[in-house]
Each structure stands twice: as structure tokens, then as C-alpha cells.
Design a protein around this nucleic acid. Structure first.
Lengths: 237, 237
DNA sequence: TTTCCCTTCGCCATAAATGGGGAGGGCCCA
DNA sequence: TGGGCCCTCCCCATTTATGGCGAAGGGAAA
């Protein structure tokens, strides 16, 4: 228990609301003695939530400019599991370099390290530390703190999920085995006729499964039902 | 660096192939002095891979019995982000209890602790420690090792992804913004006509996006395309 | 024991999606 | 500056999906 981060993790675990996470991110920035600490997530329903030490003007500007579509950190981390040093991302497009220039103008450091985190139902979050320094300093910093940052990112996400999860959380009616079979086959490209053949049942029976699955999932059509079944973890494709 | 797990994490990071992960799991079992350590994953394409100290007979039996559909550990962890003590999962169904009885008969301990891990493209993995003990011992054990187990799980997954990723990894042609818009709207239940209206374009134009997205994703139909776009992380619903 | 849910099947009519043509303007990168 | 990709629009014919009606046996839970 001689780690600097154990007490901080405890603070995180004691957080009661999103405001506490905000305070914690500022605290961590001071602990690590770096420019910025940011936690940012996209929930299953597409809502966004972020807390951290970026200038609020930058955050607003970021959203207004729709930088989510440009930001190489988002684009890069979305496809990977490993934490990423910003230097190693793809900055080849003109838009990406312009974005970074704009970011630095708004107070961001030139160095960054982001940890992607994924939750159930397609939740995606990023935990980022940012600083202004030379490469050597940053390499040492990230190597030294890699593991602790993973734990911190994990704890941030755990809390954020906890706060959100307590809100909705319906009864979660599950799908029957046959409904799961049907959804799975449709998700991998089978037409209704093909899926029926694959399951050795009549096409009409298959329709019954699809319709009941659609009803349970509250979906408008088959595509919607499959999408929901996927994002709610009923099927794995 | 006074932790027991830092040298072990180093071992994991030095692993060269899946066999090394197998050895590592045995090593960790002995380090922690518990019955079993298992890492198990399901890749985006539905393939499974596991390594760990379970009796191979049990693994075979598990697959033959299609226990994936019954196992409360899988079912429970798939919906959550937090690590789960097996005691706190849902054992209410008859099938679940029969499954556990069968498991113990094959050498599993009565206590378990599983950490769900998610990667890009819908990858899902579980890292599990298992032991035969009373509740008090297990509670203490999991409380003491929670954080280190998260890091170990993370490291296992990182390596597994690394080994798999080096194999295929196509050029990963991305979708255009409009294609993403189209896929997103379809995924949330819009029909083609509705989606076209929402995007203020003609329905025919929308069709062009759907078809080109389908082509890029190698999908057979719209539902398939949306499913692929979701599991490959192009859209978030 | 009754009630709910799961599984299975059929027919008919309409709405929606797909396949295959063709066409023009714009932007970015080499 | 030319090729490649992106965005936008239109028609026709065919295949496929959906909506609505009804029906029956089996199993598990209450």
C-alpha cells in the first residue's frame, strides 16, 4: 500500500456523484503534476459526458466544431485496446494537424496518453492525461505510470457507469434461445429464408421469433432489433 | 515495485505466444496459491480461445454441453463492467445450479471471481480466479487482490489481442460520414424513407450510401451491414 | 392445476428493400 | 491536372419483408 495511487483510488471509489469525479480529476492533475486529466465517455444512447481539467471554452469549441469526427485520439483509440501515446497515432491528415494546432492554442499540452475503456452495451470511454513537455520526459512519465493510469481509468469508468446505471435499468427481459438463434443468423447476413433453412424450421416460424424478439426489444424493424440485441449483449457477432 | 505482481506482469508482457499465456496462468495459480486461473475470450468472429488451469475434460464437457448458454458467469458478466464475485450472480434457475454442481464435480472450486474485459470490435473476454474455500476467506482474498487482478486481466487480454491481431488485420477501409449517418439511423430503427427524410436527402441517395457501406463492410444485406458496422466500431448505438 | 411462455405451422395482401441501369459536381491527393 | 472517392439525384422490375388472421402441443412456474 505504498503507492501514491492507492489513496487516490480510494477517493474515487468514495465518489458520490459526477461532481466528485470532476474534483478527483483536478486532484489527480495536481498529484501527477501535469497539465490535464480528462475522463470522457459516450453512453450506449449516444449521450456524452466528460469531466476533467480542460478549459471549458475548448470543450465547447470542440463540440461546436464536431471535432469528434476529426480527433485522431478518438479515431485511433476507438479501434484499439491498448493505451495510446498521442505521438503514435495517425496525424497524416491535414484536418488532424489543424485540430492539434487549435487544441494547443486552447491550452492543451503537446503530449498525451489516452486509455480506451469499453463497457457493456457499446459504452466507450477515454481516460486521458495531457502535458506540455519534450518527448523524453513524456516517455518516462508514461512508462512509469502506465499501470496506475489503467487502474485510475478503470475506477473512473466504474463510477461513471454506476452513476448512470442507477438511473434507467429496466427489467431486462431476455430473449429465448430460438430468438437468439434467429437474431444471430440475421446479424451475420442470412436472409429470413436462409435463416429458416439453417434452423430447420419454416420461414413463418422464424418470423414469429423475429417478431417476438422485436417486440421484446422494443424495435421498429428487424435491423433495429438486431442492433439492439447486439448492443444489449444478447447476441455476439 | 514491491508488489508481488509486478514481476508477473513483466512475465506476461514478455510472452511470445499463446503457450506462454498458458504457462503464465499456471504460474499465477501457484503464486496466488489458489485452485484455478483462467483467461477466456470470444473474438469478433465468434472464435473462442482459452487458457488456464481447468481440467481439459471440463473444458471439453463445457463446450459439448453448450454451457455457454447456461453459465451464469458468462451471462452475468456480459452485461456488466465490474468484476463479479460468483456468489453475487444469478443462480436462481435450475439449469444454473445443475451447471455448478457439474463444475464442482470436475474439479472447480465453489468460489470464483471473474473480470469482464471488452476490446474493440465486440471482443469479449473473461479473466477468472477460482478456489475452494469458505466465504470469509474468499471475500478477504478478492478484496486484497482486486486491483492487481484487474491489471493481470488487462495484461492477459492485451497479449491475446496482440497475438490475434497480428494475423488478419486488413486495411480496414472506413465508412464515409454519410455512410455512418445512414448506418446509425438504420441501427436506431429508421426505415430507409425515414432516414432519408432525417438526413434531408432523397431516398435514392440514401440507398447509395447503404449499398456502398454494404460493399465496404462485405455485408449481404442492410441488417448485416449494420451489425458489422456496430461490431467493428464504426457506429455506436 | 392453471397460466404463462416457448416452439411450431399455414395463408393472403401490402409495404419495403434490393438490383441494375445512368449522370453530374465537388474535393483531395499525387 | 487527372484519377479516385464522396455527395447528390432519377426510373423500372423483382425479390423480400411485414402485418394480420388463426391454431396447437409442451414445459415450467405459480
Amino acid at each position: 500500500m505504498a503507492n501514491w495511487y492507492d489513496p487516490f483510488l480510494q477517493t474515487l471509489e468514495d465518489a458520490q456523484d459526477l461532481a466528485d469525479l470532476q474534483t478527483a480529476s483536478e486532484q489527480l492533475r495536481d498529484l501527477l503534476n501535469i497539465d490535464h486529466v480528462v475522463y470522457h465517455w459516450v453512453s450506449a444512447s449516444g449521450e456524452q459526458y466528460g469531466c476533467g481539467t480542460y478549459d471549458p471554452n475548448w470543450v465547447r469549441h470542440y463540440l461546436e466544431q464536431d471535432y469528434l469526427r476529426v480527433d485522431p485520439v478518438i479515431l485511433g483509440c476507438y479501434q484499439r485496446f491498448h493505451p495510446a501515446d498521442w505521438k503514435r497515432l495517425d496525424w497524416s491528415s491535414k484536418a488532424a494537424r489543424a485540430f492539434m494546432k487549435d487544441a494547443i492554442k486552447h491550452g492543451l499540452g503537446n503530449q498525451g496518453y489516452s486509455i480506451p475503456i469499453r463497457g457493456p452495451k457499446g459504452q466507450f470511454a477515454l481516460f486521458t492525461v495531457n502535458h506540455s513537455s519534450d518527448d523524453a520526459f513524456w516517455t518516462t512519465f508514461t512508462e512509469n505510470h502506465r499501470r496506475s493510469l489503467i487502474l485510475v481509468a478503470y475506477a473512473f469508468n466504474q463510477k461513471a457507469l454506476e452513476f448512470e446505471g442507477s438511473a434507467d435499468r429496466g427489467p431486462q427481459k431476455g430473449l429465448s434461445p430460438r430468438e437468439i438463434d434467429a437474431m444471430t443468423l440475421l446479424a451475420v447476413g442470412y436472409s429470413r429464408a436462409q435463416a429458416a433453412t439453417a434452423l430447420s424450421i419454416s420461414e413463418h416460424t422464424l418470423r414469429v421469433y423475429i417478431e417476438s424478439a422485436r417486440f421484446k426489444l422494443g424495435a421498429m424493424n428487424t435491423t433495429h432489433a438486431v442492433a439492439r440485441a447486439m448492443s444489449q449483449g444478447f447476441i455476439v457477432v
